[in-house]
Design a protein around this nucleic acid. Structure first.
Length: 874
RNA sequence: GGGCGUUUAGCUCAGUUGGCUAGAGCACUGCCCUUACAAGGCAGGGGUCGGCGGUUCGAGUCCGUCAACGCCCACCA
């Protein structure tokens, strides 16, 4: 930045005063100052949010080229989720990067999306209105949502249900947008999207079809983890282990000679699904039994005893029951040992009502006791029956064990067999797994240890990505299937829509070459009833926001993006799935850098979660402390570090913002016009600027390394020293006249301009407010300060440091003597090396005034300061 | 069972290649209504840097080990 003086006349009609102003920055003209007497933070959020929107301050200029653009792949918040401080934390941190890059000369592409499709919305709609979706019902065009939560629940059609989902998410989006605006996120609101909108659906379906065409997507009938409440398959990435009470039941199977062989199981209700017993091949206890059969208790089904390395001789009795399916190990055994399938649990989680065909007449009678029950009910029933028959050895042993849950579910997952769509992710393909691991290595992780989580996740994948969900509110799988002459679905060659026709809903659109009347008819077609998992769409946020499918010009300017900011818990889902999609379609990483924020902990350092009832909602906090304070707190959480909610930190942020107002009022209070930098001649002033230049370098380097906290720290530390020491030292001189006063005025103004810009990424409202007192345009479009800007006005930062040091000693002496800081000092004795004395003497005039010392006497020696107070006898 | 992170003052946290008597803010105590700021200023007290062991002239910092807390993962019979 070059220094230049320009002369601009502005006419103030009231006073006919013509101010000749000199601008510090070439691009920014100055105007008559409008410094309020009692500056306040109140109302700044609403005031500036409105003006920024009017002025288009954060509007993205798409005429810029890729290397002039900084593109952010903003996380679309789940609008149906609750608002909590975690929502604030990461977004504010990202906003500091956006604001820094914008000031540093980049055009920032900072869109906002809303993640509204999927289960969270459905569940919220069900609870909010008291409705449930029954796809069998016809659409009711006159249906109006109940005013209050309806009890009992009303069943409504799928289309009515989806309409309610749209209605409620739009309301939720407004609440989120209000929060983001109040917090001062510098997003371009013209670049927003929702994951359920037509554009997102088109992008999602188009990418799916591309994956299908290349063989990266496929469907398969297989056992899947199943949530019985939502009645949908769930993916590996959505699992959560929860500690749950259970009981080991020691149960006798019977060898051909009638002798018992004991197994231990926590799921005795699945004995009717047993297909084999399994033990380790080297377990001598069971070796004689391999190849023979044993019969199950109560049901008398003959099952083979087989060997497999996963059977652990140390666990239970060393021999386990294999059922189809009790857990994921059963699935492994079933697949690898090619065992039959004997499933009894239905998609609704209940035992099927008809006795299964592999049971004898007697077995069917036993089964009748279980028919229609849920597993936990059947478990108790089986325990009773086994106890009666004498096949239960002793009392069940109560245990706590980890059970797999859907992360949003309430009951343990079951395993059912069904046809689902998958996208390859390396879980069954080592070459692809390696390629994706390399993508992860090539991504810049902030902080870098987060990359290990990605690596572990990819290493631990045990299957492809299950993307189909048996739900309603989401992006439909864009396929139909032919029906053969008997009406059976031919899954192998789906009917595919044209890309140009997307988005489509196969339940209402008709495949090419068919008529609606052929729907569901033999020889006709059937639409795929499923929707895609929400991640299958949100894995495409770069493509959606960058308009990959319909705006190649924009796409070229923003992709691959610069940063993906997100939380650590969705590395396995959002980050990984985005990497997979970009890898397949574009052959690149979707972004250069991933910035991972930490967790929010409540003040007791417990993770905040809805179930713990310790969620703090942001808006009341913003009302109490102000946006700047809440932002300041968020910016004090270092990258990737778990951070406790701390109201003390917020108060400090608020104090900093108020200090900026007051410091600015002082700095701008001496003249109505800007003073040229060449007027800065006094050593103390030049020294202050030298120190400020160092601060600018520190903050800039920190931001370049994505360390907003360090940038804030540097600015803050420097600013408090500026107000506490420099302002006190320069005060008397600044109130005077002549060149030494003018030097102070110019230095104060320049420093203020720099501080406002250093703080702008963190405290956008108050910095903009102060900027508006004396500058045109927005501070958020002003140039990030560079030390070059004032290099010629700066000298040796040690002058101010040394003088401040002496002033500190004088203050200590006055404090010890319990006198006012304004108390006179007759003589101030400063001892120091020749060099120290020389530095102090450069600021001696200001020091004498600030210390109220009549004279300062210097001597050579170890540094010390003695103050001879005027009124003090001691 | 495996991995990652954290552990420094009563609280929240700095302490970047090992280097002067370990820092900040809050809280606490004392003083000061000083013409930017009393929703303020100035000053002060306060720490065996989680434990143990090691490397080194020197360790909050490096190595080993243990512990607590948080998170992630694991085939949970």
């Amino acid at each position: 930045m070059r220094w230049a003086a320009s002369t601009v006349g502005t006419c103030d009609r009231a006073s006919t005063h013509v101010a000749i102003t000199l601008s510090i920055l070439l691009e920014q003209t100055s105007m008559t100052r409008n410094v309020p007497n009692k500056p306040s933070l109140d109302g700044l959020e609403a005031k500036w949010d409105e003006r920024w929107e009017e002025a288009g301050t954060y509007r993205f200029d798409r005429s810029k080229k890729r290397d002039e653009i900084f593109a952010i792949d903003t996380p679309p918040p789940t609008v149906s989720g609750s608002l909590h401080m975690g929502s604030v934390f990461g977004y504010v941190q990202t906003d500091t990067h956006a604001r820094y890059r914008r000031m540093a000369g980049k055009e920032v592409f900072y869109p906002m999306g809303w993640d509204d499709n999927g289960l969270p919305t459905e569940r919220r709609v069900q609870n909010y209105y008291g409705v449930s979706c029954d796809p069998g019902l016809p659409y009711d065009s006159d249906f109006n949502p109940p005013e209050e939560t309806h009890d009992p629940v009303i069943s409504i059609s799928r289309r009515n249900f989806i309409e309610l989902c749209h209605l409620l998410t739009q309301e939720d989006e407004k609440i989120f947008e209000l929060l983001w605006r109040t917090l001062g996120l510098s997003v371009d609101w013209k670049q927003s999207y929702a994951t359920i909108d037509a554009h997102s659906q088109r992008t999602s379906q188009k990418m799916f079809l591309r994956n299908l065409a290349r063989g990266e997507a496929y469907s398969q009938e297989a056992p899947v983890l199943w949530d019985v409440d939502f009645q949908s398959a769930v993916a590996q990435a959505e699992l959560e282990d929860r500690e749950k009470g259970g009981a080991y039941h020691k149960i006798a199977f019977h060898k051909p000679d009638g002798e018992p062989i004991y197994i231990e199981t926590s799921r005795p209700e699945l004995i009717c699904s047993c297909v084999a017993l399994v033990a380790h091949a080297e377990d001598e206890r069971y070796q004689p039994l391999f190849g023979s059969t044993v019969s199950s208790p109560l049901f008398g089904v003959e099952v083979p005893v087989v060997a497999h390395e996963l059977a652990d001789p140390e666990k239970g009795t060393g021999v386990a029951m294999i059922c189809t399916f009790g857990d994921t190990t059963d699935v492994t055994w079933w697949r690898e040992l090619e065992l039959p399938t004997r499933a009894v649990i239905q998609h609704n989680g209940r035992f099927q009502s008809e006795p299964p065909e592999w049971l004898s007449k007697d077995g069917a009678d036993v089964y009748a006791e279980l028919a229609g029950l849920f597993p936990n009910q059947a478990r108790r029933k089986m325990a009773e029956l086994l106890a009666e028959s004498g096949d239960l050895d002793g009392e069940p042993k109560q245990i706590m064990h980890q059970v797999k849950f859907y992360e949003k579910g309430d009951r343990p997952l079951e395993i059912v067999t069904s046809r689902q769509w998958y996208i390859r992710n390396g879980g069954r393909d080592d070459d692809l797994r390696k390629e994706l691991l390399i993508r992860g290595e090539n991504l810049d992780w902030i902080p870098d240890f987060m990359g290990i989580r990605y690596q572990h996740w990819v290493d631990g994948l045990n299957g492809d990505w299950l993307i189909s969900r048996q739900r309603f509110f989401g992006v439909p799988i864009p396929l139909w299937y032919r029906l053969d002459e008997t009406g059976a679905i031919e899954y192998e060659s789906p009917l595919i829509p044209n890309e140009d026709d997307l988005p489509i809903d196969p339940s209402s659109h008709v495949p090419i070459g068919f008529k609606e009347s052929q729907r569901g008819q033999p020889g006709g077609f059937a639409g795929d009833p499923d929707i895609m998992d929400t991640w299958a769409t949100s894995s495409l946020t770069p493509q959606i926001a960058g308009h990959w499918d319909n705006d190649p010009d924009l796409w070229e300017r923003v992709f691959p993006m610069d940063i993906r900011p997100q939380g650590p818990e969705i590395i396995r889902t959002w980050l990984f799935s985005s990497t997979v999609r970009a890898h397949f379609e574009h052959g690149v990483l979707p972004w250069q850098t991933a910035t991972i924020n930490g967790w929010i902990l409540d003040p007791d350092r417990k993770k905040m979660s809805k179930s713990k009832d310790n969620v703090v909602t942001p808006l009341p906090l913003i009302e109490e402390y102000g946006s700047e304070a809440v932002r300041y707190w968020a910016c004090n959480g270092r990258p990737g570090v778990d951070t406790a909610l701390d109201y003390g930190v917020m108060k400090i942020g608020r104090r900093l913002a108020i200090k900026l107002l007051n410091g600015a009022r002082f700095a701008l209070g001496f003249s109505d016009s800007d003073v040229d930098v060449s007027a800065i001649t006094e050593p103390l002033d030049r020294s202050m600027l030298a120190g400020l230049a160092e601060t600018v370098d520190r903050a800039t380097n920190a931001f370049e390394a994505y360390d907003y906290t360090r940038a804030l720290e540097a600015a803050e530390k420097s600013f408090w020293a500026w107000t506490d020491d420099y302002l006190e030292l320069v005060k008397t001189r600044a109130y005077g006249e002549g060149p030494t006063a003018t030097s102070a005025h110019a230095a104060l103004q320049l420093a203020l301009s720099v501080y406002l810009r250093l703080f702008a990424p963190f405290l956008p409202f108050v910095t903009e407010e102060v900027w508006s007192w004396w500058r045109d345009g927005s501070v958020h479009r002003a140039a990030w300060p560079s030390a070059d800007e004032f290099a010629r006005a700066a000298s040796d930062s040690r002058v101010l440091e040394s003088v401040s040091n002496v002033l500190g000693s004088v203050r200590r002496a006055k404090s010890d003597a319990k006198v006012s800081m304004r108390a006179e000092v007759n003589r101030l004795y400063v001892t120091g090396s020749a060099e120290e004395v020389e530095l102090i003497q450069q600021g001696a005039g200001d020091l004498r005034e600030a210390a109220r010392a009549t004279e300062i006497l210097y001597s050579d020696g170890e540094f010390s300061v003695e103050s001879e107070l005027a009124d003090s006898s001691s």
